[in-house]
């Protein structure tokens, strides 16, 4: 009856995406790990702690650490190229705000499509927006990892505890180990 009411979204002309996951590494021994932090408070520290644990317990090597210049926006082409050349798996985080949680998921999907297994860590307060971003980028079931909110106010000891809690799921996300 109301088909003459115009759609204000423009969504009827939106193209659909295609889901595409990278192949998991059989083992992390000798694997090159990239860490991509987004400037959010404690993000770099949490990723560094996870990187150290991946090194000490699984024999991986952290080969590249980078910080996104614009936490709200997905990773740009030069940084993507640099990272995919320098590492075999990537850990991205921490999605701890309205826009950066969504963009972290977009980054993870991009790395996966480029053949690099990606573990994306988001605060659990942003699960809905992270999932919505996965849908927008054509991979509705993209498997991001969650840690309890908040992250920003943790002290260094608490960050280290979080890293320990996340280690196994990060490893299982990017490799066949621990699955």
């Amino acid at each position: 009856m109301f088909d003459r009411i115009l759609d204000p979204t423009g969504l009827s002309v939106r193209p659909a995406g295609v889901a595409s996951g990278a192949r998991r590494l059989p083992s992390l021994a000798g694997a090159r790990v990239g860490l991509l932090d987004n400037t959010k408070q404690n993000a770099a520290l949490l990723l560094a702690e996870i990187g150290e644990l991946m090194t000490s317990r699984y024999g991986a090597v952290v080969t590249i650490r980078r910080t996104k210049e614009m936490f709200a926006l997905p990773v740009d082409e030069p940084l993507l190229s640099e990272m995919k050349t320098a590492c075999d798996v990537v850990v991205v985080g921490v999605g701890d705000c309205g826009s950066c949680s969504a963009s972290a998921v977009a980054d993870g999907i991009t790395f996966e499509r480029e053949g690099v297994p990606a573990a994306v860590i988001c605060s659990d307060a942003f699960a809905v927006t992270a999932r919505a971003m996965a849908e927008v980028h054509g991979d509705a079931d993209f498997d991001f990892l969650m840690t309890p909110h908040p992250v920003a106010v943790l002290n260094p000891e608490q960050v280290a505890v979080r890293a320990g809690e996340l280690l196994d799921v990060v490893v299982a996300r990017v490799s066949e180990e621990g699955r």
Binding site: P8, G10, C97, G98, S99, S101, V128, T129, A132, M133
Partner: peptide, 14 residues
């Protein structure tokens, strides 16, 4: 909301 798709509780995270 409609054109950019920034809807509360989804992409609008106030």
């Amino acid at each position: 909301r409609n054109g950019l798709g920034v809807v509360p509780h989804v992409f609008e995270q106030a």
